[in-house]
Design a binder for these strands. Structure first.
Length: 650
RNA sequence: GCCGACGUAGCUCAGCUGGUAGAGCAACGCAUUCGUAAUGCGUAGGUCGCCGGUUCGACUCCGGCCGUCGGCUCCA
């Protein structure tokens, strides 16, 4: 009998018979490890414990619950147990598929006559616990396509038969069983259900069959699982903690904005929110001279013709706001995007290569008739503005322009202290795209190269780009882990042609310019949503709606406090003076809850010496030395001017 | 738009199986003049999301609509 060599993480090697399983190797290492084993890992890929090893393995790791990947295996197995529970309680339910990514939760889709109620979920969860207690072992089988088809046909699992057809010819078909339940699955899975320590079903929701709106809706159940009850509990508490930073909660608390049912999807910005809003816009505008942008303003309303030219009329008619003009038959569209207007601006005169790159920027309010179910706080709205710009340039300037964009983006995100960007390349959709696939590939390569040379990792979302060109999306996650695109850079292969844009080149001939769409913040509204959650409302000093809270200790210090306020305001600092007859502790608590970055206490001592005693939120300083009013004011003004991210002690 | 849940005072929430509403915080008033996260007392505040139905009687039960939340789809 032939043997194979298996390398272990500690450098040792084992000789085992060919065909030995991962679990056999674990047993060789130790019985305790074998009992704890959840899966194996070879070259970074998880493999099932029952997988036979047919050749030498340079490194085989045994994954237990102590391994970060262990919980993924547990969740994946909990997923099967949940489907088993559903089948036991609802035998007529048909099983579709589970989730690909088990890093946080699991899910399964079911075809059932009635949606699951919250009570159903409780019953299913109870059933899941019961199955876990049964400790039934998971079994792995490799079967032929015919056997698999016969099995699922007999079980009446029509959705599975359809999924079976997705598996490419020649690929192995594996089944996993535990108890009565069987499903098409690659694994890996736990040894037995008891290894699933703690399971919680999170919610039920509708989901279209194969993600297609024209298909019937299945019922999806989400859940999560951990090796122990304690880990599950901690996970649920972390989620609750994160929800406290939700911008929909923090925004109204800090009086930044208001969302009103009388205009769904159109936020009201309150005075403090407006300071933030303008602060962001002014910041970007201030960078425009450096990066060579010219700000323009195109109309809010256009005749339908411009959108027919741009293609938006055909592609997005239902998602725009339309109404009749004063003249018979005149159809007007409310601006939902800036690009058509900028193309018109490009065409106002004969353009020369000497003018390129021409970078046109606009902050106009845009309106899109988003479907009601998609609206989400400030993150997805019907009324918004972008720090939008379109770059018209020669084709050989595209690469430099992409680099300049990332330079600017990095400068902005750094100044704001915004971390956690995930940059993704969105590539050509399967269908409905314009232009030549070869041109798409050139653009996609240019974009990806620019991302990497700017020092970022670059993910890929295949087929996600808009029809007119490849796209870079700067994505951030909200407190619930949902991804939102802020900055974008897109190459437009349609608009220059549709609008007949031309410039006279160095060679005296007419040429069509290249066109880029780009935004650093993206929608200011969405940016604020993400930014509020990332900062928890602790904005950098230069952006904070109220920068300093003056806290006089008693009424007799109010006059002095008024003078300090005047000095700060004269230096452009945003100040609030809390002259209510409350105790200092109360005033401090309020200022803390309002996340005001700097407090200044004013009492007898300060009044006599012409000082203030600062208390800085970010550095925990409490009741330290007083500083003179002049120093206080000039230090703060200097920090604001530098747009320092974290306020130091004044 | 689709599936589900939810909607009570400015906010957070209570209100058993139908008998027309309550707390804390906030607001306002008075007292207090206070040194680094809540001073005390008092006052006011609600067409129980909207419309309709059942009932002697609806915050409570039923239906429709609107909105919000989670998910799906969409996202120029």
């Amino acid at each position: 009998m032939s043997t194979i060599t298996v390398g272990l993480p500690d450098g040792r090697t084992l000789e085992v018979p060919a065909g030995a399983t991962v679990l056999d190797v674990a047993r060789e290492i130790g019985e305790g490890l074998a009992r704890a084993a959840l899966a194996g890992r070879i070259a970074g890929e998880l493999v099932d414990l029952r997988q036979p090893l047919l050749g030498d393995v340079s490194k085989l790791e045994i994954v237990t619950s102590r391994d970060p990947d262990g919980a993924d295996v547990i969740r994946h197995s909990a997923e099967h147990v949940m489907a088993d529970a559903v089948k036991r309680l609802f035998p007529e339910a048909q099983v579709d598929v589970g989730r690909a990514d088990h890093s946080e939760k699991f899910q399964y889709d079911f075809k059932v006559a009635e949606p699951f109620s919250p009570e159903d979920l409780e019953k299913i969860e109870a059933q899941v616990r019961k199955i876990v207690k049964e400790k039934s072992p998971f079994a792995r089988e490799e079967v032929s396509r015919e056997d698999a088809r016969a099995l699922f046909a007999e079980l009446g699992e029509e959705l599975k038969l359809s999924r079976l057809d997705d598996i490419p010819e020649g690929a192995p078909i594996t089944l996993f069983r535990h108890g009565e339940f069987v499903d098409l699955c690659r694994g890996p899975h736990v040894q037995n259900a008891k290894q699933i320590g703690a399971v919680k079903l999170l919610e039920a929701a509708g989901a279209y069959w194969r993600g297609d709106e024209s298909n019937p809706m299945l019922q999806r159940i989400y859940g999560t699982a951990f090796a122990t009850k304690q880990e599950l509990q901690e996970h649920l508490e972390r989620i609750e903690e994160a929800k406290k930073r939700d911008h929909r909660r923090v925004g109204p608390q800090l009086e930044l904005f208001h969302l009103d049912p009388l205009s769904p999807g159109s936020p009201f910005f309150l005075p403090k929110g407006m300071v933030l809003y303008n602060g962001l816009v002014d910041f970007v505008k201030a960078l425009y001279p450096k990066y060579g942008y010219h700000e323009v303003m195109a109309p809010q309303l256009f005749r339908a013709d411009i959108y027919k030219t741009s293609g938006h009329y055909q592609n997005f008619h239902d998602d725009m706001f339309w109404f009749a003009g004063a003249d018979e038959g005149e159809e007007l569209g409310v601006k939902g995007m800036n690009c058509p207007g900028h193309c018109r601006i490009f065409s106002v005169k004969k353009r020369s290569y000497r003018e390129l790159p021409l970078r046109l920027a606009e902050f106009s309010r845009l309106h899109r008739n988003e479907r009601s179910g998609t609206l989400t706080g400030l993150a997805r709205v019907r009324s918004f503005a972008q720090d939008d710009a379109h770059i018209y340039c020669e084709h050989d300037q595209v690469e430099t322009e992409i680099h300049r964009f990332f330079e600017m983006m990095t400068e902005v995100y750094t100044a704001l202290g915004l971390e956690g960007v995930e940059i993704n390349l969105e590539t050509r959709p399967e269908q409905g795209f314009i232009g030549e696939p070869a041109d798409w590939e050139v653009g996609e390569r240019q974009l990806e190269a620019a991302v990497r040379s700017a020092g970022y990792d670059c993910g890929v979302n295949p087929g996600e780009a808009a029809f007119y060109g490849p796209k870079i999306a700067c994505d951030f996650r909200d407190v619930l882990g949902r991804s939102w695109t802020l900055g974008t850079l897109q190459i437009d292969m349609a608009m220059p042609g549709r609008f007949g844009l031309r410039y006279i080149g160095r060679d005296g001939q007419e040429h069509q310019p290249a066109m880029l769409h780009r935004a650093v913040l993206g929608s200011i509204e969405r940016f604020l949503a993400v930014y509020i959650e990332h900062t928890g409302g602790d904005f950098p000093l230069w952006l904070a709606p109220v920068q300093v809270a003056l806290l006089p200790i008693t009424d007799r210090h109010a006059e002095y406090a008024g003078k300090v306020r005047d000095a700060l305001e004269a230096a452009g600092i945003r100040v609030s003076l809390d002259d209510r007859s409350e105790k200092l502790g109360f005033k401090i608590r309020e200022a803390e809850l309002q996340k005001i970055p700097i407090m200044a206490v004013l009492g007898d001592q300060e009044q006599e010496q012409g000082t203030v005693t600062p208390r800085v939120r970010s550095d925990e300083s409490r009741g330290g030395e007083g500083v003179s009013v002049d120093t206080f004011v000039s230090d703060l003004a200097e920090q604001v001017a530098r747009r320092q991210v974290t306020p130091g002690s004044a």
